[in-house]
Design a protein around this nucleic acid. Structure first.
Lengths: 264, 264
DNA sequence: CCGACTTTGTGCACGCCTTCACAAGCGGTA
DNA sequence: TACCGCTTGTGAAGGCGTGCACAAAGTCGG
């Protein structure tokens, strides 16, 4: 009997304060991987990239101060992040770059190869299929899909496009573990469902829709328009600050006030 | 005298508990915009997209429960997020969709047009230049740049490519407020510096490097390989869980234990 | 072998964000 | 008009992540 995640049967997913005491003779397995905060995982990936550059430059040892500067984070945060993967630094010296690389790779599961399938070979799909960054970092693009039958068989980035109806067969055959959705929004949910039924458990979604998936499937979303709008918000905030300050300074000229303080 | 942000001169950026009392006769300007958490801003953009879809479907009123379901968030969170933009709901009824749209647009600064410049017309640059999603959501692509002189003058997505040396002139001329960096990593920092000196204060960076910018410039990063690695981590975590569970179940078969509980 | 210096690893406190739970408020109905 | 049911808006609590500051632990020079 293998319990399925998300069934909420024998598996406790949340930990209510009143349920800490293990009942009778059950076995409690505490796993370490889950203990790493999501934010830390994202940063570990960044550290890994920086460290790879260091290896190329022939750097063998690096301190938390140097690495944190290169990665654009606080050095304490960096050390805490690294502590999640284990204590592999030498006090008074720093970290051995290669050792660190291999341990981060292990934690991120990069020792295994992760084949990628891109669905939707439009502008973005083409760009993704041709993007060398995936291949070089251990994520080979193994399959391409599109509804357009005229595209079937046409090679893009060296890989012939398959028709979307073959998605299950091809994904299983080529052991695809990550699906990338680069279709128009209307098609995204249907494509997602097909990927899921093909056994793909990780999805990177570029379509501007909220995908509905089972609990055991992980979805990450990249929405360019949302990114733009966040930037837009900051532009507006700056403009507001500037005009508020302006108004305040006008006030100063009228009344007898010395200083203007803008509190966050 | 206009204070510059990030100078830390007269401007209080952090609020230590012991410094709440305004000194002598200074004027304290509390701005509302900054009070919105970054995470909430990102979600507001999502709500806006969902609401736009509602408008197209002819929906005029929506409750927090419905909207939160469509946006994939908790309804309490949604209401709190909306409370940041102001109280425009009607108790017992819900929100007027159009009213909500216009207020969110105002908060996100979307009443103003934000022209976009894309730098680096490779695979990704092409895709971005042709991507209709920007245009339709109020972010017209107004300029394209590349180092390759062969590309200069060639129209991509209807816009002729300019040489990167003209970046300052063109950006000022076309009032570019957002710069998108889609160059190889080696060129990214240089391009960034040129954008900044052209007066661009918001940058969306697709190059896998940590950009160094002045405090008054906002950078958002999209790193596809990092996204992949985060997904990879989750694959690995699942595998760990499964094997831990397997081991535990093996244990059960040996010893007399009833249940296995995996705690987060 | 010892002391000075450097850097890691982490306990702790603070602040932000999320979530709960409920009072307040509005429309409909008798 | 008064009541009832529904939905918003928010105070408060709890959890999570960040950053400080320091003890632990190693290297290096004498």
């Amino acid at each position: 009997m293998v319990a399925q995640r998300g069934e909420g049967d024998e598996v406790v997913t949340t930990t209510p304060a009143n349920a800490v005491v293990p009942e009778q003779d059950e076995v409690v397995v505490r796993e370490r991987a889950r203990a790493i905060p999501e934010a830390a995982v994202a940063r570990l990936a960044v550290y890994l990239r920086v460290l790879s550059g260091m290896v190329d430059q022939g750097v063998t040892t690096i301190s938390s101060e140097e690495l944190s500067a290169a990665a654009g984070v606080n050095s304490a945060k960096l050390r805490k992040d690294l502590s999640y993967v284990g204590s592999y630094g030498t006090r008074g010296v720093g970290y051995d770059v290669e050792v660190l690389v291999s341990h981060i790779e292990r934690i991120l599961g990069l020792t295994r190869k992760h084949s990628v399938a891109v669905v939707g070979i439009g502008n973005l799909g083409h760009a993704l299929a041709n993007y060398g960054g995936f291949q070089s970092r251990g994520f080979p693009v193994a399959a391409l899909f599109d509804v357009d039958e005229d595209l079937t068989g046409v090679p893009v980035g060296g890989i012939p496009v398959n028709h979307i109806d073959d998605i299950t067969t091809v994904c299983v055959e080529r052991e695809v573990s990550i699906g990338v959705i680069a279709t128009p929004p209307q098609a995204a949910q249907a494509v997602c469902d097909r990927l899921v039924s093909a056994g793909v458990q990780c999805i990177l979604n570029f379509a501007p829709v909220v995908l509905q998936v089972p609990d055991d499937v992980e979805v990450r979303k990249v929405d360019l328009a949302v990114e733009m709008q966040i930037l837009s918000f900051h532009v507006a905030r700056r403009a507001d600050e500037a005009s508020a300050e302006q108004a305040a300074n006008d006030l100063i000229n009228g009344v007898g006030v010395d200083r203007v303080v803008i509190r966050p």
